[in-house]
Structure formats: C-alpha cells, structure tokens
Write a protein that binds this DNA or RNA. Sequence first.
RNA 1: GCCCUUGUAGUUCAAUGGAUAGAACGAAGCUCUUCUAAGGCUUUGAUGUAGGUUCGAUUCCUACCAAGGGCACCA
Length: 576
Amino acid sequence: MIEEKIKKLIKEALKNLNIESGNFSVEHPADLTMGDYSTNVAKLANVKKLETKNKRFTREEVADMIGGFINRNKPKEIEKVEEKAGFINFYLSRKFFAGSIEEIVNKANNVGKNDILSGKKIMVEYTDPNPFKPFHIGHLMTNAIGESIARILEHSGAAVARANYQGDIGLHVAKAIWGLLKNEKLQNKSGSHNLQATNIGQAYMHGAEAYENDEDSKKEIEEINKKIYARNDKKINEIYQWGFDVTMEAFEDLYKMLGTKFDFYFLESAMADIGRDIVNANMDKVFEESDGATVFKAEKHDPKLHTRVFITSAGLPTYETKELGLTEEKFKTNPEMDLSIMITANEQMNYMRVVAKAISLIHPDFEKRMKHITHGMMRFVGDKMSSRKGNVITGESLLNDARDAILEKMTDREFPNEEREKIASDVGVAAIKYSILKQSTGGDIIYDFENSISFEGDSGPYLQYSCARANSVLEKAQKENILPDFEVLPGEIFEVEKLLYRFPEIVFRSASEYEPHFIANYLIEVARAYNSFYGNTVIVNKEDKTSPYKIALTYAFSFVMKTGLHLLGIEAPVKM
RNA sequence: GCCCUUGUAGUUCAAUGGAUAGAACGAAGCUCUUCUAAGGCUUUGAUGUAGGUUCGAUUCCUACCAAGGGCACCA
C-alpha cells in the first residue's frame, strides 16, 4: 500500500532529521491539484531540539526540511514532494497510476473487495412492508439502503442473509379487512396483482379513516382484530388469506424489479406467541404489571429511556413483544450469526432502544450482536403529493412513473421492445435509488418527484450513461482490434486515474460506517472525470500509440463503475 | 417539559479537526464532419446565533434560536 509507504518514509525523515512529531495523518487532499497524498506532520512537529536562541523554525521551514529529505529518498511511485502552507504534498508518478490501472483491469469485477468481514455471518433486515397496506415510498427507501448495505458487507467478505419482517397481523390488517367487508367491490379478484394490491390499500385507508372518526366502526374494527388473532371466523379467515396472498405476490414483483432476493421471511403473527412466552418467563425480573397491562419500565435502567407497553390490558401483544420474539427467532434460526442488523425509519429509534434494553436484560450475549440503523423520512416538497397520473404516490406508482418517463426519453433510440422495457425499468430504479443513497442515511429526504426521476447531473442514470458510453468505446476498440496495454504511456496523468485507485478505500469506509453514500458520491466524481476524459480525448485511435493504454483505462473505469453501481443495488445496462 | 435527529449557495445534497468549504439543479454563454449531447467547457453564489477547546472548527463542547421525530396499551 502506497499510503503505508509514505508513512514509513515520513517516519524515516523524522528520525534522520532528529525531529519529533505527534500522531500525524496521511490523507488525500480535498483538491487534486494539491497532490495525491498530503500530511500535516510539519504542523505537529516539535523542533525545539534544533532551535537556538537566534533561530526559530516556522512550520513552512519544517515542512521544507522533511519534504526535502523525502525528495532525496523517494521511491519510484512518487514523482515529487512539495511544501505548501505547512503541509507536505505527495504527487504520485505516471508509473504508479499505470500500475494501479493494470491492477484494476486484472481484478475486473472483484475490484474493491476486502476481507475485513471475512468469515462473518450477518443478517440484514430491511424493507418490512405490511400485507394489506400499500408499498409506500418509505419502504422503497428502506429497501434501497438495506440492499446496498447488504451488498457492501458482502464485498467486504461477509456472508449476508437478507431478511424481511412483515406485519401480517395487527390493527392495520383489521382496518383493511373492515374496509373490504364494507365494500366488496374492492375485493377485485380478476385484475392484476398490482391493481388488487392498490384496492386493498384503498380498503385500508377507508378503515383507518373510520377508526379515527367513528366510534361504532372503531369497535367493529377492534372486534375484527380479535377474530384475526383467534382465527375463529371463517369469512374473515378467507378474506385474510386472499388479501395476504395478493399483497405478498405484488411485493415479490417489486423486489424483483428492485434487485432484492430475501433469504428469510419473518411474519409478525408467528412472533407474537414467542414474544409472549419471553415476557411471561421474565415477569417481575424485567416486566411488571401496570394498569392491567404488562410494561417494561426502561427508565429504571437508563434515565434516557421510557416505559413501554408489551402486553395490552386487552391481553394482546404489542409490536415490542413481537420484536422480542423476532430477535429470539433470528438467533435461533442462525445460531452462529455474528451480527444482526435492522434498518428502519428514525421514528422507530426511540422505542427500539427500549426494546433493545429489554433484550439486553434477557440475553446479555445478544446486545453486542445487534445493530439498529435508522434512516430519515421522505418528506414532500410543496403539495406535489400526487404522481404523474394524479394518484397518491406509492412506491409502486413511483417506480412505474419513473420507468414511463425513461421510455419517453428513449423513443428516439433504437432497441428491441423487450430490451427497451428492461432498460427503462433499470434506469428508473437507478434514478430513485440514487436519489435516496446519495445522501447520508440518517437525514430526511426532501422529496421532489421530478427531481427523483431526473436523468441529468447528479443522478443514477448519469452513472449508468457514463458506463454505457465506456462500453461503446470498448466495443469500438474490439472492432478495430486494439487491445488494452500498458507499454506506451501518455505523458499526461488524467484526473480519472487519480480517482480510480481510491475505490477500495471508499468501499472500506462504506462498510465500516454502514454508509452507501460514500460510494454514491465517489462514483459521481469518477464518472465526471471519465466523461471529461472522454469529451477531450479520442480514445480509440490507430494512429495514437497510447490508445491501448487509454482503452485499458476505459476498462478500469467500467469495472469500477459497474461494481460501484452493484454496491448501490443498481444495474448497469450495457446500452441505454 | 424530557429524550433523539438535523441546521452549509435561491433549491437539494457533500466535506475521516486541516489548505481557496465541493457537486448538482436553477440562471447566462459556448460545444456534435470524433467512440451515445442522458455528454463536455466557461461564468455566477453558502457554514442559524453567541461563547469555549485547538497551531487550526462546517466538524468537538456549552447555551440559545429553528425544523422534524419520540415520550403507556398503534406500528
């Protein structure tokens, strides 16, 4: 590693010059014009030993001394070393960059892999849509983040299991079933799955509204809720089964479009009893009775936490209890699991902490093996609450609208129809996923429909487009029979080369911090650099002796871009 | 009231305690007889307020102001 080499070099310089320095850093400067690596060693240096009454050293002078030593002893990877404003900047050599490009070409689609998590078993739970409710854009958000984190962890050597936890039971189901019973037309059994799912969504919304505004309806819904738990009403059981199947199938179509394949499906209904048993077994130890309900007074263990109900006074287990069961079940089905990651919205954070506290009292060994990652919400800008077709925006409608918008854009390009559909779908997914993943995970996303399916500038399609252009360069190179090679190097070092070799560092950081946006931001930078290179250079040119190297560079770019997009959960169409 | 997030160009987002705070959208101009113009090249603009720590603070600490979320039978 070149970074290690530079550090070693600095230490040698300090030793030889008899200078002491603290814990200096070696990092990439913000600006490429300031070199490839930079160190603050001179700023932290203590040169009192060398100073006399008449001579005091400035930081610039110290930097010059250290830089001078390194210049005299530099290895072939380093072109020059410069002092600027007290920093020492390292410029890497043409040879170094050519070597790094060759390395990427050799690694091909394995570029950026590391083994920090090698041998680790990790489960990532995400998406978690509820049957009988629409797949809304929040689910799209959790899915985009979860799938990306899962892939990043895989690229770091972990064996990742994808899990989906679905709320197939609870008041929301009762609301939807109440709506379906009141309006049988909504039980459209002939249409497509998507349509049926939408109708169930409508039924849910009727039920939710009635529950809020009408006392009698509220009572009816609560009755239905009890019957769903008890499974003792034939008609309700039938509607339940139908609605459950329809929504699950519709969700499965969406997962396919989004590029997610789950290994485990956990259902809330199955967790209720497991959780209840845990609560019963830990009565008085962890849980206590209060106003007829079973609660956990978390503030007794941590003043920042609060009391939560686990079993209601009506005897029904709450989400907290089911969560307890889910955790137990996850570790039971995967006893060697090293880490269980859960991805949900921020609003879940505070009560998940309470649940986590309860779990830590019951299973102290689980505590360190659980991680909760939360993301912000999709917030709408202005009153653009509706999609292109005037419907309320759901995750489903957004995906469809994005795809349609791309199809319009593609009318003047020639593709077979089947291919066209697939490309439009992949580009639409890229637009939406990228708009979610480009920013850090915790914050809200101010949601603008037009913006989220934009194809220009800072967007997913821009990345795909750069990749497609690189592909067509490579196709042309093949036709003209020019093979990639590293013999004759151009004099100029292109910006894109200065970025490509950093890809593994970016993956490493994303994996360490569970943050996809580092990759998203990096890819934009690389794409811009490549597009600039592409725009200002004729790459495939028989007259140009450096053309084989430029083609190799294009290969390296396409491998990094394709792999990076994969880590974001985005497909890279060969053509678009 | 208490707890958790978050305050950066007109807008939406970046910036492991470092240099001249980066992009994109928007706006103005240029650019396809060259491998995909969904592109490239110019120009324009910002750290909520007040302190503190530090050689150095958008970043860490304190207070205030503002926005969002959570605080008992919903998830």
